[in-house]
Amino acid sequence: MSWPRIQFLEIGDQPWCPAWLHDHEQLSLTQLWNLRVPLWSHGSLATQACAVIQEHLRDPSSYTIVDICAGAGGPTPLIELEINRKLEVQGKEGVRFILTDLFPPVREWARIAKMQPQIAYRAEGVDARDVGRLAEAGSRECRIFNICFHHFDDGDAVGILRSALQSADAFMIFEITARDVPTCLCSPLVFFWGFYVTLFWLWRSPVRLFFTFVVPIAPLALWVDGLISCLRTRTPGEIQELIARSGADLDGWRFTSGRRAVQWPFITLYYSVGVKSDS
């Protein structure tokens, strides 16, 4: 069961949102990508994303994967480690990744790139609605959108898809929310995840400790933004409608969508994929 999409704004998207709160939300989501619960989890969100990449890209080593709205890095460093570890075992070359964003956090990206040589970044701002080809000559290009596509209104989303269809060879949209009753009912669980993140990764920050355990603003914001994400995440059919509106040449493209359970019934990876048939 679904209902009409609502383009609400999350607290983390507001210009008045404090930097520490925005960082807390970003870290919470990043750590969620690596969460594994013994005897329950089907891998992690990151491992399931890697499985989707390997399932739909015939030869991942021939691609450069561009995280087109990377923020502070998000799950891409985790995905890079997972997929290249598997490819190394198979005796194949690793996949190269590029981080881009309209407002690039260059210092954080430089730290990531220093530790993981297969990850590069664009220091200048990149508008996802108008992106030229970023992969080097001889490499195919796949653009990924890690739990960010629901942030864009329909006009921007059409432009972003048009750009991907015109200048890339594949795209993948990953979401961890859905516009349905079960997902909305599970969304309050991220409130408790906010406490866990502060306790294990941010315990040295008095501000974060106070606004988590004394006045629980950080967990509450995470819950509210998670619910808003549910209300504005697009269905596969709605993404197909945006693709049709893009006006791009769709000859040779094939589109699929699906879901992968990670911690049933609370965490599921939803995906929509477009790949050129000759890629």
Rank of each mutant, 00 (worst) to 15 (best):
I68S: 11
A70R: 02
S61L: 10
R85C: 03
I119D: 08
P77D: 08
D127F: 09
P104D: 02
G94N: 05
I65Q: 09
K86N: 08
P75Y: 12
E108G: 03
I119N: 10
R111E: 06
A72N: 11
G74Y: 07
G73V: 02
I112D: 01
A70K: 04
T76I: 04
E88F: 08
Q54H: 09
A123V: 05
P77L: 12
R58P: 00
D67R: 00
V126Y: 00
W109I: 07
A70V: 03
E108V: 07
D67W: 04
W109Y: 10
E108H: 10
A110M: 12
A113G: 12
L102M: 07
Q118S: 12
R58G: 01
A72Y: 15
G71D: 06
E80T: 13
L57N: 05
D101I: 03
P105I: 13
E82I: 07
F97H: 04
A128R: 14
V52S: 03
T76K: 08
R122S: 03
R85H: 09
T64E: 10
G73C: 09
V126Q: 03
K114N: 07
R96F: 02
Q54Y: 03
E108W: 07
E93G: 10
Y121N: 02
F97R: 09
P77T: 10
R96Y: 04
W109R: 13
F97I: 00
I65M: 06
K114F: 08
Q54W: 03
E108D: 11
E93D: 07
P60S: 11
Q90S: 13
V89E: 12
D127E: 10
T100K: 08
H56Q: 05
N84L: 04
I83W: 08
V66M: 13
R96D: 06
C69F: 06
F97N: 05
G125V: 10
L99T: 03
V106P: 04
A110I: 09
T64M: 06
A120C: 07
A123R: 14
H56K: 10
T76D: 05
I83A: 08
V95F: 01
G73R: 03
K92S: 09
V66C: 12
R96H: 12
R129L: 00
L99G: 01
R58S: 11
E88I: 05
V66S: 13
L102H: 08
G73S: 10
K92E: 11
P75A: 14
Q90A: 15
Q118P: 00
R58Q: 12
C69E: 13
G125Y: 07
A72K: 15
I119E: 11
I68L: 15
L78W: 09
D59N: 15
I79P: 00
Q116W: 14
E55C: 04
